[in-house]
Structure formats: structure tokens, C-alpha cells
């Protein structure tokens, strides 16, 4: 009987963790002691690239998200290109667009020069109406624009498995180019390009990229981002 109860609890906690988030943070900036990996040898970076997203940004399931998540890989690329940018990872596992909207104010307390918006996948997997997701993402963009009118904006395109149904899948996919066009944002056409749906680049859950996958994701982003910086 206890087993059943535990099962019930696990279900609950599983759901909790589904909605809960991983806030891989701007360690580099705030932290008094440890610059978790990315920024430590940089000669005084002056500008900030903020990745605002869900588990994909947070690096969920990776052994060491602080150095393996795609924003961290991007940071390496920035470093290699010797650009004066410092990456802040504001990923939050399981977050929906509505959650992002609730969180954005707090995150925007810090100065942002480049804002990368990566949200919506969880909305899609949960079948949240496309209109709702669009509305939330737009609201987030509005907030960024209001606070940092000079910030450059990037949005990453997302797709959901075809098994969700073509209508929904297509409507969902269209959210991102539309938002990019409307808000004059730079679009990463599909964040998980060459990764999504390829078993060996994804973890056992079939959703989250592996370390290898994250590198490809980082390239997808870098291709677009380097033009922005």
C-alpha cells in the first residue's frame, strides 16, 4: 500500500518538477567567489548576452550544465572570437511562456545588451493554445523593449513533434517567425535543427539534447548570433 502512496507522491513530485525550473544563473556576474567556468579568464567583458529560456537553455539532464549547456558553449565561442560579451544563462527547466512572463521582471534587473528568447516548447508539449503562447511571448518582448530599448533581440524558433497533430504543429511553428518579424528580432530558425528527432543526440527522454547535441544547438545559435554581436 505504501508503494501506491509513494507512487502517488512521485506522480505529484514528478509534475512539480515538470513545471519547476532550473535557474542556471548569471554566476559570473553576481557571484562573489566562483565564476562557474565561462567568464573567469575574460578580460573584463563589458556587455551581457542574456539567454532567457527553459530546460533547453538551462541544460537540463547534462552532467555539468555550467559548462555543457548550449549558452555555455556559445560563451566559449564568444571567448574564442574575443568579443567583449559575457553570457548569462537564465534558463529555467519546465518553464512555459506564462512562467517566463512572470519571471522576466526579476531577470531584467540586470543590464541586458543582447536578449535571446527561448521559450514555448513546454507550451507546445502541453497543448497550450498557440494564441496563448504568442500573447505571453509578446508580453515578454514588450517588457524587454520597455526596460532596455537599446538591447538587441534574438528569438529561437521551436518545433514540436509531428505526433502532436499537424494543425497544432504548424500553428506552433509559425509563432516564432511571426514574432521575429513583428518585433524586428533576429530569428534562429529552429533551435534544435539537426538535433531534434535524432536519437543519439538526445537524452533517453528523447527531448533534451546530450552534450554532443548541445554543441550543435550552440552552432545553430552562433550562426545567427555572431552577426548580432
Amino acid at each position: 500500500m505504501i508503494k501506491y502512496k509513494i507512487a502517488a507522491f512521485l506522480l505529484l513530485s514528478g509534475l512539480l518538477s515538470f513545471t519547476a525550473c532550473e535557474s542556471k544563473e548569471q554566476k559570473d556576474k553576481v557571484d562573489t567567489s566562483a565564476d562557474g567556468g565561462s567568464g573567469e579568464t575574460k578580460p573584463k567583458p563589458t556587455k551581457t548576452v542574456l539567454f532567457f529560456g527553459d530546460s533547453l537553455t538551462a541544460g537540463y539532464g547534462l552532467d555539468d550544465p555550467a559548462s555543457n549547456s548550449y549558452p555555455s558553449v556559445v560563451q566559449e565561442k564568444i571567448k574564442a572570437a574575443n568579443l567583449p560579451y559575457k553570457v548569462v544563462n537564465a534558463g529555467n527547466s519546465g518553464e512555459t511562456s506564462a512562467g517566463g512572463l512572470g519571471r522576466i521582471d526579476w531577470v531584467l534587473k540586470q543590464k541586458v545588451d543582447v536578449f535571446v528568447l527561448e521559450l514555448g516548447a513546454n507550451d507546445g508539449l502541453r497543448g497550450i493554445p498557440v494564441s496563448e503562447t504568442t500573447k505571453n511571448l509578446q508580453a515578454i518582448i514588450n517588457k524587454v523593449k520597455a526596460k532596455y530599448p537599446d538591447a538587441k533581440l534574438v528569438i529561437t524558433g521551436m518545433q514540436i513533434p509531428p505526433s502532436m497533430g499537424a494543425t497544432y504543429v504548424n500553428n506552433f511553428k509559425a509563432i516564432f517567425p511571426k514574432l521575429a518579424a513583428k518585433n524586428n528580432m533576429t530569428l534562429v530558425p529552429f533551435l534544435l535543427d539537426k538535433v531534434g528527432g535524432i536519437a543519439k543526440l538526445n537524452q533517453a527522454d528523447g527531448i533534451h539534447p546530450t552534450e554532443e547535441g548541445a554543441k550543435i544547438v550552440a552552432s545553430n545559435v552562433w550562426t545567427v548570433l555572431k552577426g548580432v554581436l
Partner: peptide, 25 residues
């Protein structure tokens, strides 16, 4: 603790025994 970018200096004031088997948070 790092609360979405803001550090929080805390200390452990108490340890709790939690009954995880209940349907509640």
C-alpha cells in the same frame, strides 16, 4: 543560494523531518 541571479546569504536555522508520503507539497 542564487535566486535567479540574486545571491541570498542564508544559514541553516533548523533541520526538518518531513513526511514525504503525504499528498501535499
Amino acid at each position: 543560494f542564487n535566486v535567479q541571479g540574486t545571491p541570498m546569504n542564508t544559514y541553516v536555522a533548523s533541520l526538518r523531518k518531513v513526511n514525504w508520503n503525504k499528498v501535499q507539497t
